[in-house]
Design a protein around this nucleic acid. Structure first.
Length: 946
RNA sequence: GGGCAGUUAGCUCAGCGGUAGAGCACCUCCCUUACAAGGAGGGGGUCGCAGGUUCGAACCCUGCACUGCCCACCA
């Protein structure tokens, strides 16, 4: 027997262990023809503990996996974590800083050792939390984006792209994060509106210093790197000036005034300073005007400080300090007219690119990086959506997804950090013929900017060296080959060009998203043609938030389609972000984060999960309030107690009979009604899950259990305690537990365990049992008749409550009316007596009783003699109010039915419905009007209201 | 500058063509033998604004207004 009190903690631990012991979540490729249902987890970064967003993400996946497992699919949910590149390295760098260390001080190898040790702890924490959340992950399949098996996929993919000419190295303008010290791809740059200024600076004409061209800029410090000023060719303000030289203020360097179509005449002064090294648009402009412009100086370095080219007194200053200094100096610098060269400062707010990992302003910078051409891959990803092989839920995301892919830019792949897959490219020192390169010991990294690729090699794996002794060998089987360059296993052999054996590996690592993009492939052993890959790929659904739709989802699609010709997952389910209860994004700095563990401790994991699920409408953000967990906890408690009730009914009684053995003719109205309702909620729930509307699915089950099952059926079940009722109680409850199990796995498992003997279930766990099967129980007649009972009960209860009849007091009642509804009351008087606490219920013989209150339901009228108890004044008010409501209703339906347009054009069913409702309202109205008349005729009763 | 959502009861949200719903909060009554983490009843909304389509609009269309998000090299 169950404890009287529902206490979640104990049962959670118990079932977590039991499931693990039974290997319940393990999956192998099925040989019996069962279809796979596969989800790969969006691997959380190993940067710490999981937050509430992870809890939502994983709860939704678990609901789907458990649901499909219950419904007979060979379900496999692959767990794993992501090494998380810059984000993770940043956390470690902070730790080092606290110890007065830097990564450069301790060196690459020791740094990576520390990273590995630390991220191992994080992995443990994360997997522990997922377990605590009840996630039915196949833990034997745990993967890490930086482990050996994944490295294999990464190197294979890199080599393939290189061989196909999609990956190449080059010097280009990239987004540079000064704080993180690395290049970023375009999507790793966030745009923030920031307040700033527009500085107007006068550049004197070199041969006529009394005249000026005024440029407007938001970044005066880059002036030091200007190589030109540009205007629109048709801008009459600058007619005759184009082609002449200007004198760059502060440096007094002559620079040309160019004309270019890209210049917006309406902005600022129409004249733009051109700083190719520090602005992407200027960089392009420079390339268009190469012949007219000199090679541009880079005045801001990788560290965010001014370079020697910025000259004294700016060299060495931070870019922020340099701005102050430049502005100050421009204010002091006077033109030939005696006025400052800085002619105007106006407030200006524009969007500033910031690093998505540290929020520092991005510095556009020219540097040598690895790039991947994305166009051809993107086309395939778009085609997959066009062909509906890949669908996004909600589909409103398909358009932005398509557009992003349509405008895709090359992907900057290399990162100047250490934590990640090192780029599997080696350079031959001999071929480079570079002193610097030659001075580097064999196998060490290539100093940047030393030359072009001499050899590509999908080879030496630095992490394998660290994880275990010795060098792990890459065995791709097929080795790509391009430009006659040998690509070999292990370290490169002799250089095919010069025979040298002195190799330098590329210093950089790959963007963490490169390995993430391969995730659905790599977790199944690709590039090997494994049995797992054949059975589980393509996976069914990817569940994620919209913030990584491009960063991750799109790239997985592109990779999957490129390498397999098949989408990696057929559906993308996009959920919202968990916000605080006022809709604000949770953040440590706002102090509004809620810890999932705290909530699970306080309310139980099931309640926590259920509250997340009931709010997860597709694509909608969730304003999360603790009250919602309270509500879910209360629901869990309701489940608990209703099961206790059913178990109490079973105690000492005989067994139950299977549903299919029940004699339909023997069933009561309530029996037929609840079975009909149950069949309906099963269908409804399944339809909602299929549409990924998990909130609606959870809501449907909630209402069924609480409203239909507990409030009506269980109450009526108390009237008769026979085997039939017992059987139905057990079947319906067990079925409901099964359907709720994906949402609340622990409590349902506990309750199922208590019920299963009675229910004749042999399975030890819900996931081993069959999903509820029910068909043919839909019963419109039962629903109609039960509707009469329910309305009558509600009407009588309202009467009691509004006239202050004590809830415990049994009252007598008479009913008047004819037809099928009266018949329902006659047949089911026991229901009404029980539910409305009636001492007796009889048909009214003779005139309406005096000294009684009136209740109406459908076309029926109930009279409750309450002489002495009743406050007739109150009763008059009550009835008058009801009459007013009915009058309004009658007026409305009357107008509708008199409108020929409505009667002729509306669907017939609609007209019939209005007619039926009108009849009901008419009956009620007439009956109540008559009552009111009698009441008012009763002078002597205290009539004068107030 | 484009695009996408949202605007419904005090709060948080469902509903998306037939006279407005839930949970919480609020008011009244009740510790009735599954459950006070409960039961019964009740108050509360001209569904952002303005037009249009329709017999009928919270729901479809067009504008507008806020709010939020995504994308974008206007210095």
């Amino acid at each position: 027997m169950l404890d009287k009190i529902y206490s979640p903690q104990a049962i959670e631990a118990k079932w977590t262990e039991a499931w693990a012991k039974a290997g319940l979540f393990h999956s192998e490729p099925a040989r019996d023809g069962r279809r796979a249902y596969t989800i790969v987890i969006p691997p959380p970064n190993v940067t710490g503990a999981l937050h509430i967003g992870h809890a939502l993400n994983n709860t939704l996946q678990d609901v789907l996996v458990r649901f499909h497992r219950l419904h007979g699919r060979e379900s496999c949910w692959v767990p794993g974590t992501d090494h998380g590149g810059i984000a993770t390295q940043n956390v470690m760098e902070k730790q080092l800083k606290a110890e007065n260390q830097t990564r450069h001080l301790i060196g690459r190898e020791r740094f990576l050792e520390r990273m590995l040790a630390w991220t191992r702890d994080c992995k443990k924490t994360i997997l522990g939390q997922l377990t605590r959340l009840g996630c039915s992950l196949d833990f034997g399949r745990e993967a890490f984006t930086l482990d050996e098996a994944r490295a294999r996929s990464v190197y294979h993919a890199f080599a393939d792209f290189f061989a196909k000419g999609l990956i190449s190295r080059g010097e280009r303008m990239v987004n540079w994060c000064v704080r993180c010290g690395t290049a970023l791809s375009d999507i790793e740059v966030e745009h923030e509106e920031r307040k700033g200024h527009l500085w107007h600076i006068r550049y004197p004409l070199a041969d006529d210093p009394a005249h000026f061209v005024t440029v407007a800029t938001t970044r005066p410090e880059t002036l030091l790197g200007d190589t030109a000023v540009a205007v629109h060719p048709e801008d009459e303000r600058y007619e005759g000036l184009v082609g002449r030289k200007l004198l760059l203020p502060l440096h007094d360097r002559p620079i040309p005034l160019l004309a270019d179509d890209a210049i917006d005449r309406a902005f600022g002064t129409g004249a733009v300073k051109v700083t190719p090294c520090h602005d992407p648009a200027d960089f392009e402009l420079w390339q268009r005007h190469l012949s007219e412009m000199e090679a541009p100086p880079a005045v801001i370095g990788a560290d965010g400080k001014m370079t020697p080219d910025a000259r004294e007194p700016y060299a060495g200053l931070s870019r922020e300090k340099a701005r102050e200094q430049v502005v100050k100096d421009l204010q002091a610098a006077k033109g030939r007219d005696g006025l400052p060269l800085l002619s105007k400062i106006e407030p200006y707010h524009g969007s500033v690119g910031v690093c998505y990992r540290c929020q520092q302003a991005i510095e556009p910078r020219v540097s040598e990086q690895w790039f991947m051409k994305m166009g051809p891959l993107a086309e395939k990803a778009v085609a997959a959506v066009d062909r509906r092989e890949h669908r996004i839920f909600p589909d409103s995301w398909e358009k932005p997804y398509r557009e992003w892919l349509g405008n895709i830019q090359d992907w900057c792949l290399s990162r100047q950090i250490w934590w990640g897959h090192r780029i599997p490219v080696w350079y031959c020192a001999g071929c480079l013929g570079d002193k610097l390169a030659a001075s580097v010991p064999d196998g060490e990294g290539l100093p940047r900017k030393t030359g072009r690729v001499s050899a590509l090699l999908a080879a030496g794996v630095p992490f394998a060296k660290l994880e275990q002794d010795g060098v792990w060998q890459y065995q791709a089987g097929k080795t790509p080959d391009r430009d006659g360059l040998a690509v070999q296993s292990g370290r490169p052999g002799p250089c095919p060009k010069c025979g040298g054996t002195h190799w330098l590996q590329d210093q950089d690592v790959l963007d963490t998203w490169f390995s993430s993009a391969l995730w659905p492939l790599s977790v199944f052993g690709w590039p090997e043609e494994t049995a797992d890959l054949k059975f589980y790929y393509p996976t069914d659904v990817l569940v994620t938030g919209y913030e990584i739709l491009y960063l991750w989802v799109a790239r997985m699609q592109m990779m999957g389609l490129h390498f397999r010709g098949q989408v990696p997952f057929t559906h993308t389910l996009i959920h919202g972000i968990v916000r605080d209860k006022r809709g604000k994004k949770m953040s440590k700095s706002l102090g509004n984060v809620v810890d999932p563990l705290v909530l699970m401790d306080k309310f139980g994991t099931d309640a926590f999960r259920f509250s997340l699920a009931t709010q997860a409408y597709p694509g909608r953000d969730i304003p999360f309030a603790e009250e919602s967990v309270t509500g879910a906890r209360n629901f869990a408690n309701k489940l608990w107690n209703s099961t206790r009730f059913v178990l109490m009914n079973l105690e000492g009684q005989g067994g139950i009979v299977p549903l299919e053995k029940l004699d339909r003719a023997q069933l009561s109205l309530a029996d037929r009604w609840i079975l009909s309702e149950f069949e309906a909620v099963l269908a409804e729930t399944r339809a909602y899950v299929a549409a990924y509307n998990l909130a609606a699915a959870a809501g449907a089950l909630y209402r069924f259990l609480w409203d239909s099952f507990c409030d009506w059926y269980v109450e009526l079940a108390k009237l008769e305690r026979g085997v039939t009722v017992r059987s139905i109680l057990v079947h319906v409850l067990t079925g409901t537990l099964k359907m709720l199990h994906p949402f609340m796995p622990f409590i349902t498992e506990e309750l199922f365990a208590a019920l299963r003997v009675h229910a004749g279930e042999s399975a030890e766990f819900i996931l081993g049992a069959r999903a509820p099967q029910l068909s043919g129980w839909a019963d419109g007649e039962a629903r109609r008749r039960m509707g009469v009972v329910m309305e009558a009960v509600q009407s009588l209860r309202a009467l009691r409550s509004q006239l202050n009849v004590h809830p415990g007091l049994m009252i007598r009642a008479f009913y008047a009316g004819a037809g099928p509804e009266a018949e329902v009351v006659r047949e089911h008087g026991d229901y009404l007596r029980h539910l409305a606490k009636l001492e007796s219920l009889e048909p009214l013989a003779g005139p309406r009783p005096a000294q009684s209150a009136t209740a109406v339901a459908k076309t029926l009228t109930f009279f409750v003699p309450l002489a002495g108890v009743i406050d007739f004044d109150k009763e008059r008010q009550r009835i008058a109010k009801e009459i007013a409501r009915l009058s309004a209703e009658l007026e409305h339906s009357g107008r509708q039915l008199q409108d020929r347009n409505f009667v002729e054009r509306a669907p017939e069913a609609e007209v019939l419905k209005v007619r039926a409702l009108r009849q009901e309202a008419e009956a009620k109205h007439a009956s109540l009007a008559q009552t009111l008349q009698t009441l008012e005729a009763k002078e002597g009763a205290p009539g004068g209201a107030a």
